[in-house]
């Protein structure tokens, strides 16, 4: 019973994560401008990969779930650093617009 519930939850999380990654890729391909692409990309590097790692609950394997938890903590702490580094480089290189 528990196993079936976990399978369903894991499957839903997986679909959600892969959906977010797909939308992020569409966004990166469609949007114009470096900053706008960064918004789309952070959809995948933040919530997207967290959902895919969280779907490890369906494996019911303690080692897998604990590694995935480490991965989630790590992703939450580092994804903003990478996107800030790119945004800062874009501003230093003189990409678009005055602040409002």
């Amino acid at each position: 019973m528990i196993s079936v519930v976990l399978d369903v939850v894991g499957g839903l999380l997986l679909v959600l994560g892969l959906g977010l990654m797909t939308i992020a890729l569409v966004g990166v391909l469609r949007m114009q401008g470096t900053y706008s692409k960064l918004h789309a990309q952070s959809l995948a590097t933040g919530p997207g990969v967290c959902f895919v790692l969280a779907s490890s609950v369906a494996t019911e394997n303690a080692a897998t779930i604990s590694y995935a938890a480490v991965g989630i903590v790590f992703t939450v702490l580092t994804a903003p650093v990478a996107s800030h580094a790119i945004a800062r480089a874009a501003r230093r290189r003189g990409a678009e617009a005055e602040p409002r």
Partner: peptide
């Protein structure tokens, strides 16, 4: 920079690929 963004996204996709393979 836009290529760097795409490369970062690719790394995340490969991370997801490895996670799925592990499952």
């Amino acid at each position: 920079l836009q290529r760097l963004i795409a490369l970062d996204l690719l790394a995340v996709l490969v991370v997801a690929l490895l996670a799925l393979l592990s499952y």
